[in-house]
Structure formats: structure tokens, C-alpha cells
């Protein structure tokens, strides 16, 4: 990666996620690469969290705007599916910010993916209690489940392991 590509990666990676604006795309782990393909021409590769995630189009146009504003006239954003994104790709800093935002971060998981057996407790992002219960497997977006803390009674979103 050239110095220019590193610089452009930082700019594209600093774009906030459209649905979880506390996280940057870099922290979410969806940035796959930034390549200068010619003078004034940049290609950004991005991977969706979920196959049907509608935020991917907003992400693409936000990246284009950010790079245009930095003086890159031609930006193309390419979506790739492989290797598939996993919640393990969310950075430590990203997990910390999710908790701060009131969303329980995903638990680390093995290579198999899918639902995680309830051996690791999910901590309430409000009061810190591990005494929480599932209300619904799908919440405000496909990537979150709705839970309730039985200690402080507050409902909260949990970023599901994928």
C-alpha cells in the first residue's frame, strides 16, 4: 500500500456507519481495501454486514463524498462478499463504543458462526448486570437482537454474533 492509499484509507475508514454513527466503517470492519487505479481514480472495496443490509448503499455514497471532498475526482466502491464479514471483525475500540452507545457488543465466536450458545452472558450496557433476557431475536435491524436487563429493567439492543 502506498502512502497515498494509506491516507485515503484513513479518510474512507473514518466515515461513520449510517445506522450506528458512533462507529466508523474501519471499526465496524467492513473496509476491505483502497486502491489507486489511475491518476485521480480510486477504487474502494467494501463488504456488507448482512447480504441484504440496506446501509451498504449509504456507506458507498458517504465514502464517495468523503473522497471527493479530499480531491479524488473518480471514486468507485465495489462490494465483495468473500471472505464473509463476521462480528469478530469489529475492533476493540468499536466494541467499547457500542457499549457506550447502549448496545451490547457481540461476543467473540469460533469459526463456525451463527447463533452462540448462551454460555457467555450478555452484559447490560446500562448497569453492567449479566442478568439479561432475550425479548426478540430480531430488533431494529437484522444485526441486532432485543434484550431486557432483569436487574435495571431497561430494554437494550444486542449486536448479534454473525
Amino acid at each position: 500500500m502506498t502512502a497515498l492509499e494509506e491516507e485515503l484509507s484513513r479518510i474512507a475508514g473514518a466515515v461513520p456507519d449510517p445506522e450506528l454513527p458512533v462507529l466508523t466503517l474501519e471499526e465496524l470492519g467492513v473496509m476491505r481495501g483502497v486502491h489507486v487505479t489511475g491518476p485521480g481514480r480510486v477504487e474502494v472495496t467494501l463488504t456488507p454486514t448482512y447480504t441484504g443490509c440496506p446501509a451498504i448503499e449509504a456507506m458507498s455514497s458517504d465514502i464517495e463524498s468523503a473522497l471527493h471532498a479530499h480531491g479524488v475526482p473518480e471514486v468507485s466502491v465495489v462490494t465483495v462478499l468473500t471472505p464473509a464479514w463476521s462480528t469478530d471483525d469489529i475492533s476493540e475500540e468499536g466494541r467499547r463504543k457500542l457499549t457506550e452507545f447502549g448496545i451490547a457488543p457481540p461476543r467473540p465466536q469460533g469459526p463456525a458462526g451463527g447463533p452462540v450458545p448462551l454460555t457467555l452472558a450478555i452484559r447490560c450496557p446500562h448497569c453492567g448486570s449479566t442478568d439479561t433476557e432475550l425479548l426478540s431475536r430480531f430488533s431494529s435491524t437484522a444485526c441486532k437482537a432485543l434484550r431486557r436487563c432483569t436487574a435495571c429493567r431497561e430494554p437494550f439492543d444486542h449486536f448479534k454474533e454473525l
Binding site: 448482512y50 447480504t51 462478499l81 468473500t82 471472505p83 464473509a84 464479514w85 463476521s86 458462526g113 451463527g114 447463533p115 431475536r137 430480531f138 437484522a142 448479534k160 454473525l162
Partner: peptide, 12 residues
């Protein structure tokens, strides 16, 4: 490629 991604969604 698609299946590797979708299988995790379908598990839910």
C-alpha cells in the same frame, strides 16, 4: 461465497 455468508444469516 454467497452461501458462506448467507448460511450465518439463515442460522438465525
Amino acid at each position: 461465497g454467497l452461501a458462506a455468508k448467507a448460511v450465518k444469516e439463515v442460522a438465525y
